[in-house]
Design a binder for these strands. Structure first.
Lengths: 347, 347
DNA sequence: TTGAAAGCGCTAACAA
DNA sequence: TTGTTAGCGCTTTCAA
């Protein structure tokens, strides 16, 4: 690989000059410029990003921490992150923590500040103290999807009003006339799914329903998890006419369970999720869900991070430590319907 | 961020010594060692990976080029790649080419050799000349999933016998008694899906069937693509009893189309795909498919790449330029069944 | 066993 | 407009 000074030698100038033309920093004579460009071309020169990073005191990558990139939601997000990151010349390093905070810490310690200029966190299974520590050591961190806009996490974040999402889902079901509604809630009791369920509960309370509390199951955030939970729910109370899940994947699983138990969705049972992942559009029937502004969140997270990276260099305070995305929105598709008078036919 | 020499100063030694203890290179007195370790601890020192990379002349990352990480197949693969990469201390940079060879080239030029020590290519939409060029500039490249073991691509690769996969799928259908079989083939005519279809055709030929040729559609490698193609196929020839798709996603789409047209899968129509993505297990009915050794391919790709990275340093020739994974295997699930005598009931 | 010194490829003052 | 020089943080001979 040719280096700057080889290019310089060939062009009969010094590396400083080559550097200047490469960065378009002006103050270079047109003729010299041409010569340099020719040399670059002839040698097929490409700048050494690691060297540049070292000299500039900044790294050209952002780290994206996820529990597992294989979760169907993350890739969509990662794609958006990558696109935004590219705009500021950053590459993105995927860090799978595998839901293990030890692994997460290991990643942070190795990457932060050296290889990556900033850290994006897409799951809550990292130790917040670790995150604060890396922040204090000079590498900005932003949480990509904070679920409670009203309750700042003590770290920069982009917040999505998931409580509202839950409420919208609940309301939709109520408007369709459902009374007996089961709920499938993400597995970590005090975890990120609490606000979603709280919103759902709000909707129930607002309209004077109480029955919902009996029919609640926790399940891992997967199709299989939702399947198992829905089965339990439905076997325990076959009179349920709707199921609310705090996430699309379990909602999809619930549809399968319903089918296996002889319920027709949406005729006998309505199912609603939250997020609007790609798959939600592609299930049969397509899933009614509350869409969360994923792409917007990704963009915001990257620009917030970028701001945090750049501000200190300019001696300014960041303008805000929390961005709030636009609100979640109900997307009515085929998996919900107004409750039929005759209720279920079979089972 | 503390630096090596700060640690050194605090421990009353030079940076060379600190470096030695950190790399466990021995030749350091036990007492000094302790002092250094304490200083490291006290200062909370972490090595600067970019600086180390520069000094060592090697980068700590691998680039994974994919057309779009959002394709449901890639994340599973990416996860496996990341795990393997970590074993040799590499981080993985995700490069979404977006199926655009210009974007791909841009990535290669920026990353290869500087930020990344090697390049993994997970789609064929990169210009092979670009790949060869980066290889010649000193950055090893490996194709992660070459479809024709018998026909080396002129680049290091790990090959999967996709023709066999196609054949297994075809045979399975034939063994179930199917005669009229439709095929959905990936959209790029001469592209990566050709061997899969060729294998399918082999199976047909071997058993003297010819009808298949009429019922073939090209479709993008998505659920929607498969849906549209299957609809066409089925509307054109409702007597089809089976559909073979060169990939799971379109196969899943075909199942949806079948359902929409009143075909029951598998009673009226069998559907089979290739790959065995996670989703295949989670569809209704679960998809019969030919499983491809994804994880194994990921591991092989990373170790081949690692070997290519290290060999030249040791002056050796790489042992092989092509690894072949174990063979694809039929996974029978719920979407295929022996052809019923009465054929379809409805439609 | 430890230190001194050069250098990886680049940037960025500052001088000329 | 261009060159000189001094690093960025680390590794690695080679000496001591």
């Amino acid at each position: 690989m040719p280096t700057l000074s080889e290019v310089a030698r060939r062009a009969g100038v010094t590396s400083a000059t080559v550097s200047n033309v490469l960065r378009n920093r002006g103050r270079v004579g047109e003729e010299t410029r041409q010569r340099v460009l020719e040399a670059v071309e002839a040698l097929n020169y490409r700048p050494h990003l690691a060297a540049r990073a070292l000299a500039e005191g900044r790294a050209p990558t952002l780290a994206l921490m996820v529990s597992s990139i294989a979760n169907p939601f993350y890739p969509e997000f990662a794609l958006a992150v990558e696109r935004s990151a590219r705009e500021s010349g950053h590459f993105v390093i995927i860090c799978n923590t595998n839901d293990d905070s030890i692994a997460g810490r290991a990643y942070l310690e190795q990457i932060a500040g050296n290889l990556s200029e900033g850290v994006l966190v897409m799951n809550a299974n990292l130790d917040f103290d670790d995150l604060r520590a890396t922040q204090e050591r000079g590498t900005p961190v932003v949480l990509c999807m904070w679920e409670r806009p009203g309750d700042p996490p003590g770290l920069p974040c982009v917040a999505v009003d998931f409580r509202l999402a839950g409420r919208l889902a609940g309301r939709h079901l109520i408007e369709l006339g459902h009374e007996r509604i089961g709920a499938i809630v993400g597995s970590k009791p005090s975890g990120i799914h609490a606000p979603r369920y709280a919103g759902f509960a709000d909707a129930m309370r607002e309209t004077g329903r109480k029955a919902y509390a009996k029919s609640k199951r926790h399940a891992p955030d997967t199709i299989a998890g939702g399947y198992a939970a829905a089965r339990e729910l439905l076997e325990r109370d076959p009179a349920l006419t709707a199921i609310f899940a705090t996430n699309d994947l379990p909602a999809l699983g619930a549809m399968h369970a319903a089918a296996d138990l002889g319920f027709d969705v949406p005729r006998d049972l309505s199912v609603i999720g939250i997020t609007d992942i790609q798959l939600a559009r592609e299930s049969r029937p397509p899933l009614t869900t509350v869409a969360v502004p994923t792409i917007e969140a990704a963009r915001m997270a990257v620009s917030l991070l970028r701001e945090l990276i750049e501000r200190p260099a300019r001696g300014e305070e960041p303008s805000a430590l929390m961005c709030v995305t636009s609100s979640p929105e109900l997307v009515v598709r085929g998996s919900t319907r107004s409750v039929s008078k005759k209720k279920r036919k079979e089972s």
